[in-house]
Structure formats: C-alpha cells, structure tokens
C-alpha cells in the first residue's frame, strides 16, 4: 500500500465530510419528526390516516432507497406539471432530492421503532399520570414520550448508523459526498484499495462518534442505571451514623 497516496486521498476526501454529515443530520432530524407523527397516528389509530401510514411504511420499507431516490430525482422530471410548478426549484437540485428521499425513507423505519416504543410504555405509568389529572398533550409530553424515547434509543441508534451509510447513495445522484469523491478518485486513478481504506476510515470514525453520543444520551436518559453520585453515598452513610 502506498501511504503517500493514502494521505493525499484522505485530504481530498475531507471536503466530502460536511456534505455527508449535513445530509445525515438533516434527514435524521426531519425524519424523526415525521416518524413521531406517524407513530402517534398508528398508536392512536386515527382512522383514515392510519391506513395511509401503514401503506406508506410498507412501501418504503419494501423497496430499495436507490429506487426511491431515482424516482424523485430522475422520475419526477417526466411530468410537465411538476417541471412548471414552484417545487421544481427544489426538485431540480440533486441535494434536495437526495435529502427528501433520505427523510422519507428513515421516517418509515423510524416510525416503526417509535411505535414499538410507545406501545411498550407500561399502562400503570399512564394510569398514574391520569390519576394526577394529566391528559392529552401534557401526558404525552411529560410521561409517554420520555419513557418511549428511553425505550427507543438503542434501536434508533442503529438507525443513525444505517442512515450515515445510506447518505452514500446521494453520490449516485451526482452529489460530492465522501463516497462521491471516493468514486471519482477510483475512476481517475484505478487504485480502489487505498481509496477504500481512506473513505472507510472516515465512515467508521463518524459511526464511532455517533455510537459514543448515543451511549452518552442513554446514560443521561436512564438515571436509575447510573452509579449513584458520590455525594449521595456520603449522605447515606451519614444518616446511618446519626440515628
């Protein structure tokens, strides 16, 4: 392996990192909002919407992301109505098309994760909240949602990693993310091994950082699983001594 070339490739790939990170962050944030709305619709069984969401999730989880992205980027141009509408200023751009496809895709997977989490909130917790006089949005915001979030976090962490990997498909609609630049360098130099190592390292570093963040969030959201703070222990010891 040629380490000088490896170093050069690494430097050339750096400008792709913001594109990859931006696509992943935006699509995960927007996708999670959509997913939450879908999950609530499913759990509350809000009638006509309920069926639409079931169909939506089924179709988006049953077809490859690449098909979805190509339908949006290449496919929509087939209709003059869309080409002449205001949406065309966005749908013409590969960036917005890739983002839209990623958001719609992760929303489908995310809604299933959140639905499972919302269903796993213990009945007793909700009944306790109702007994305290909470209902509707207040109950959701204070009780159901925080408990469900805790439950969903490990699975949603997996979805984060999958989305980081999924952003690489944006390179196939001409975006210059890490994979896009890597593909160009491979085509120019025919040295796939070094380019693979350099690009792979970047993706692994991003994924690893993300895993650390998720773990941090998990410990924050589950205070009961943390070691008790030292101060508390001293207090407990003192209580035992003074009757």
């Amino acid at each position: 392996m040629d380490f000088e070339f490896l170093g050069q490739t690494f430097l050339k790939l750096l400008p792709g990192i913001p594109v990859t990170l931006e696509l992943a962050t935006l699509s995960l944030l927007l996708g999670a909002c959509l997913a939450l709305a879908f999950a609530v619709i499913r759990v509350r069984r809000i009638r006509p919407l309920n069926w639409l969401v079931i169909g939506y999730v089924y179709v988006f989880r049953g077809t490859p992301l690449l098909v979805q992205m190509f339908i949006i980027y290449y496919g929509l141009a087939q209709f003059p109505e869309i080409r002449n509408s205001f949406a065309w200023t966005y749908l013409r751009e590969p960036y917005w098309c890739a983002l839209l496809a990623l958001v719609l895709n992760t929303a489908a997977y995310g809604s299933e994760i959140l639905r499972g989490a919302l269903l796993s909130v213990p009945r007793g917790q909700i009944m306790a909240a109702q007994a305290c006089g909470m209902s509707g949005f207040l109950l959701f915001r204070r009780i159901s949602f925080p408990i469900a979030l805790r439950q969903a976090l490990p699975a949603y962490g997996n979805e984060f990693i999958l989305m980081i990997k999924a952003t690489s498909l944006a390179s196939l609609v001409t975006l210059a993310d890490v994979t896009g630049i890597a593909a160009r360098i491979i085509a120019e130099t025919y040295r796939p091994v070094e380019v693979f190592v350099a690009a792979g390292t970047i993706y692994l570093a991003i994924s690893y950082g993300l895993i650390l963040l998720v773990r941090l969030a998990e410990t924050r959201l589950n205070p009961d699983q943390r070691d008790p703070a030292p101060v508390a222990r001293v207090d407990a010891a003192r209580k035992e001594v003074t009757p």
Partner: peptide, 22 residues
C-alpha cells in the same frame, strides 16, 4: 463485523469491482 457494518455498501461494491480489476 464492526468494520463491515460501519462502511457503506456502495464503497464495498466499488472495492470488489475495481479491486478485482487490479
């Protein structure tokens, strides 16, 4: 398992396709 689950499949496909050319 850690590496292959953290790297985009597209890169692996490029590696196999162009790497076999090497």
């Amino acid at each position: 398992t850690t590496i292959l689950r953290g790297i985009p499949d597209l890169l692996v496909i490029y590696l196999f396709y162009f790497g076999s050319g090497l």
